[in-house]
Design a protein around this nucleic acid. Sequence first.
DNA 1: CATCAGGGCCCTG
DNA 2: CAGGGCCCTGAT
Length: 323
Amino acid sequence: MTDVINLINRQEVDLSPSVPFHFEGTVYKPSHFPASVDYYENNCLWLPIRLNETIYGIQLYPHPQEPTIIKMAIFSENVLADEEIRTIISEVHYRFDMDADLQGFIQLADKDAILSATEKKWRGMKVSCAFSLYELLCITIVLQNAQVSRSVNMLKNMLTTYGRKVRFDNREFFSFWLPSEMANITEDELRSLKVGYRAKSFKKVSSFFLQNPNFEYQVRNLSKLNAAKELRQIYGVGPATCGYLLFEKFHHYDALDYISPWETRIFGMLIFGDQEVPSDVILGYAKDKWGRWRMLAAHYLFEDIFWRRKTESIRWLDDLIRL
DNA sequence: CATCAGGGCCCTG
DNA sequence: CAGGGCCCTGAT
């Protein structure tokens, strides 16, 4: 796609997330690999967002004076209707879990030796996913059975070939392709972008969303168990991907029922100082100590160590990540 | 130079 | 429910 979508209209609105709200911890997750689908810098997030097939540009930053208010600038091609603004606000609230009540977690962490300091440091950090379910699935597809550098390359190839270039606030991004845009693309074409056997997943996931356009919104209302049942029916969604979706996208704070080998080693170190601890021991520990907050607790520990990695060298973590 | 496992999942037996 | 195969790549 050569044409660039220029979002020239700018409109500001105020958001009032539930407090406490840790802006930086919520909108930027250092454990995620960087992609040109959003950008975070210095307490400000830029994000193209696609709703009802229309692409908007979102800029989020804390209000300079009012600590409980988050400012959102919406960039658009056309002047926004009130209804559109309401839709965007409500979607952003969902994606950054702005209505969450984490009081139970705060109380739990306060009495927990492992969590206490980390929770205080990041108090108000919400689980978030800047992307739609379909977009997140595309990310998890490139994540599977590949090292990070290859995942980055696969997503970049897909975006530059099928994504839409979006410009707002003097910045350029790629917005994801639509499920319908995958329909006429062959597996061989996808394989030429070095995605390998994942080509089939892209095709199948896209046709699933084409047939079930409201799937994400239906799953939002389901219990963890029922949501998992629905998600696992999608081709390419196994236990690891399902866990990511349940937690990051659908905010099931207890979605820690499976841990992949590489995460097992990291959690082993974080909890027991030993990377050889088997995953079922870690799962049992988390369930016992953190109960219905166990994935959120794990998330706090996980993101904290990745934050620390930005300013200090953590040898054992470098060895385990293998970029 | 070759071999190999990787931020999983599908499919088969 | 265990295990082989899968695309491609950087590490060894």
